[in-house]
């Protein structure tokens, strides 16, 4: 605890948030070095503290590229109509907003930044929940021309203090590729609508950035049955 005594509580808090975001990017399949997710508090403070010892959110932003595996997962199988499908994923831009209140202005500026920088999607981390109108814009942002292709996700710092997927009671969630999903439905002769569901607003679904229509495999450990898997359709 010695090393922490000279670091401000806000700095420790931001360090946790930052690490969770890095882990989240890695777990989604973006290129990320393990040591990046393991950054020490000292190093974090050295890189991101302002003169007064408070975290400088304005300098924490970063971008990530999808790994090969992620690109494959997000690419449709070729069809005669579309023999060379492009991956529905790309570079992501992560920004930590430092404003007291975040509304339409910041959200639209952020979207503009993503479009100008040709980013596929973005994550904005905010200190407090956005305004109702900004949330309304965000809900419709998939269909909004002014935003980036892959949409914008917003997280509140508070929700990232702890990485929920690291909790022992949270089973492992793995996103299926389109091909894997097709195989699953074929094997069990199911329609996707027959699968149990998971809301895209579910905390784990949010963590993985699930989109409507995707299927996750949930792997549980059971004392009686060993490991077993179930599948859920994101709505």
């Amino acid at each position: 605890m010695d090393e922490r005594s000279n670091v401000s509580p806000n700095m420790i808090k931001m360090w946790r948030v930052y690490r969770t975001v890095k882990e989240m990017c890695m777990d989604r399949g973006y290129e990320m070095l393990k040591e990046d997710t393991d950054i020490s508090l000292d190093e974090f403070a050295a890189r991101f503290a302002k003169e007064d010892g408070e975290p400088d959110r304005g300098r924490m932003h970063f971008s990530c590229q999808p790994t090969e595996a992620m690109l494959v997962k997000y690419t449709d199988s070729p069809t005669p109509k579309n023999p060379n499908p492009v991956p529905q994923i790309g570079t992501i831009w992560i920004e930590f907003n430092s404003d007291d209140a975040v509304g339409l202005k910041q959200l639209r500026d952020y979207m503009q930044h993503l479009v100008n920088g040709s980013f596929y999607s973005g994550i904005m981390v905010v200190q407090k929940p956005m305004t109702g109108m900004a949330l309304r814009l965000l809900r419709g942002s998939a269909s909004i021309e002014e935003g980036p292709k892959g949409g914008v996700e917003v997280f509140v710092e508070q929700d990232l203090l702890v990485n929920i997927t690291k909790h022992e009671l949270v089973p492992k969630h793995v996103l299926l590729s389109k091909e894997e999903k097709a195989q699953l439905l074929q094997r069990y002769r199911l329609k996707e609508t027959q699968l149990p569901r998971i809301q895209v607003t579910d905390p784990v679904a949010k963590y993985l950035g699930l989109r409507r229509g995707q299927v996750v495999k949930i792997i549980r450990k059971s004392e009686t049955a060993g490991r077993y898997a179930s599948y859920r359709w994101a709505i």
Binding site: A101, V102, G103, L104, K105, Q106, T131, G132, M133
Partner: peptide, 10 residues
């Protein structure tokens, strides 16, 4: 109220 809020943020 939302209009006022958004204008104030701007």
């Amino acid at each position: 109220d939302s209009l006022i809020e958004e204008r104030n943020i701007a």
